[in-house]
């Protein structure tokens, strides 16, 4: 049986080094580039005809657009409009990373969202951006976030550190959630696939059971790929709302 951890291994395809910094083009990089290409192709080609009554592809692109626009409108309000391209890019990038990771792509097949450094970098960008927006809009008043109104002053000693840690744990929980979901899902798929192969190779009948289970888990994983992209994006929206409205 193949090692279920093997799939997360990064393979350099074109080793590159600039000024002592390793920037090798790897299977992970290839998947990121592929995602960007596919997203752009999908979104531009589908609306090429600018049909009034959209076809299948065009309405899919429109659904994504409306979905993110609606999410931003509901959670952030009209002030969130200028962050729409960022939130949209974020959602598409995570979604395509999750979905393409499910595809059996030869040589470069890889799930970049299963790498904590990638998810953490994205979460950190969201976190830093939100904090900057908060301070830019409210100045030092933004610090009021860390002490609940009306609480006794004496509790500040305990509450402020807890609130601070809670605030700083945002990018970690955002990153860990996505990374852990993707990693565990892919490990389960790999293990189930291994069962199917090893059992099915010797006896036809016992292989059917893990195969059925594998099919079910695959469907579930597609659902999780969608859900996690959604959760990542909506939490970003909620953080943005807090920074803009502070309540």
């Amino acid at each position: 049986m193949a090692n279920p951890i093997e799939q997360f291994k990064i393979q350099p395809l074109v080793p590159l080094k600039v000024g002592g910094l390793d920037i090798s083009f790897t299977n992970s990089s290839a998947m990121m580039v592929l995602s960007v290409c596919l997203i752009t192709l999908f979104l531009t080609l589908s609306v090429r005809s600018r049909a009034l009554v959209p076809g299948r592809w065009q309405s899919m692109a429109e659904v994504f657009y409306e979905f993110i626009a609606g999410m931003l409108r509901e959670n952030v309000g009209s002030e969130g409009r200028k962050y729409f391209p960022f939130i949209f890019s974020l959602f598409m990038f995570v979604l395509f990373g999750n979905l393409l990771g499910m595809m059996p792509i030869p040589v470069i097949g890889f799930t970049y969202t299963s790498h904590v450094i990638v998810t953490f970098a994205m979460a950190l960008v969201v976190f830093t951006g939100v904090t900057v927006i908060g301070f830019a809009r409210h100045g030092t008043h933004y610090l009021r976030m860390f002490f609940p109104e009306g609480a006794p002053i004496a509790t500040a000693v305990i509450l402020i550190p807890i609130e601070l840690i809670s605030y700083f744990s945002r990018p970690f929980s955002l990153a860990v959630r996505l990374f852990a979901n993707m990693t565990v899902g892919h490990i389960i798929l790999k293990v189930m696939g291994g069962f199917v192969v090893s059992l099915g190779a010797f006896y036809l009948v016992p292989g059917v059971v893990p195969f059925a289970f594998l099919s079910a888990v695959t469907v579930l994983e597609f659902g999780i790929a969608l859900l996690q992209a959604y959760v990542f994006t909506i939490l970003s929206c909620i953080y943005l709302h807090d920074a803009i409205h502070m309540h």
């Binding site: 109104e149 609480a151 609130e163 309540h247």
Partner: peptide, 12 residues
Amino acid sequence: DATVGLGQASRR
């Protein structure tokens, strides 16, 4: 989710 500030959270 992730509402900072317990007072604000409970108010919400």
